[in-house]
Design a protein around this nucleic acid. Sequence first.
DNA 1: CCGAGGTTGTTAAATGTTGTACAATATGAT
DNA 2: ATCATATTGTACAACATTTAACAACCTCGG
Lengths: 172, 172
Amino acid sequence: MDMHSTETAVSSSHPRGEEETPWLSAREQQFWRAHLEVSRLLDYQLGRELQPHNLASNDYEILVVLSESPDRRMRMTDLATATLQSKSRLSHQITRMENAGLVLRQDCPGDRRGLYAHLTEQGWETMQKVAPDHVRSVRHHFIDRFTPEQIDAMYAALAPVAEHLRALRGRA
Amino acid sequence: MDMHSTETAVSSSHPRGEEETPWLSAREQQFWRAHLEVSRLLDYQLGRELQPHNLASNDYEILVVLSESPDRRMRMTDLATATLQSKSRLSHQITRMENAGLVLRQDCPGDRRGLYAHLTEQGWETMQKVAPDHVRSVRHHFIDRFTPEQIDAMYAALAPVAEHLRALRGRA
DNA sequence: CCGAGGTTGTTAAATGTTGTACAATATGAT
DNA sequence: ATCATATTGTACAACATTTAACAACCTCGG
């Protein structure tokens, strides 16, 4: 998914008499566009720096989630939810990663419909090999460009928004 | 795009003796994940609220860029750059939008290789119809959840990062 | 126990995206 | 002017994602 803006060209021509549209102020718009630009370019750059490891961002995300999961495995549906993918897409994705030897499908004891996606030893090793480079990327292109105060302030500002969006997602 | 994290599970097991990996501190990690989560869920939600208008985020972004462009048109390559898409992908995308009546391909006077993507009247009208709803979405899920001070502070923090990433992108 | 209705994960087909190669055209040094 | 080099947009093929349909399985009220 991607992007959005809030119309400079359009907002100038008001069909008057209708419910007023709350256009963004100059500052709001600057901020909004900066946020958008950083999100997108950062995704782009981090994905780029993952390529030498033969991993797409999607693959890496799966590895992260699984490696932090109990027993390094997770139910397909939960994994799909956690990574914001459709079940179908995840199914394909896991098939690919299975072929690459990073992950394994595992029957689910309690529920014979269910499957676990389980990180293989090779998947775990890949993780350990890739993660340090990735952290360095995140630092270099993002984290290290803020002061500790900025980080605290931005976290305080963002956390409630994340919560709001998570809640929305939940009951969608 | 997507993802990334900086490994809690992995960072605990150090193969000692190698160049130390600069893992994120707890605060840094919280912030990083909040940023990621907000970016992704916001994209998701805004895309969702664009669906009733029969537009994908990609389509909307093209409309925005074109509607703010002189003469409401732009060279294919410039549009591809502006929207962070490959030329190939943009070509397909414009074909689709052309079929939908939103956009038109137009010969380029000075350069017989070139083409403009030109917003049609219908494209412009679509823009005017959709933009107000989109702004409301952006406000409701993002902008209105910050104080003016937070907005100023975050813009000040993000702008240099955007510039850094833009520069990287430029010489890639 | 039965069956209606929900959930799980996969699949096929349609659609979208990426990477590479290409023809047409421009540009610039000589 | 001429040629080597670069740029523009498209086309094809390989790949990824979405959509809708599905079989297999759980759950729970009766």
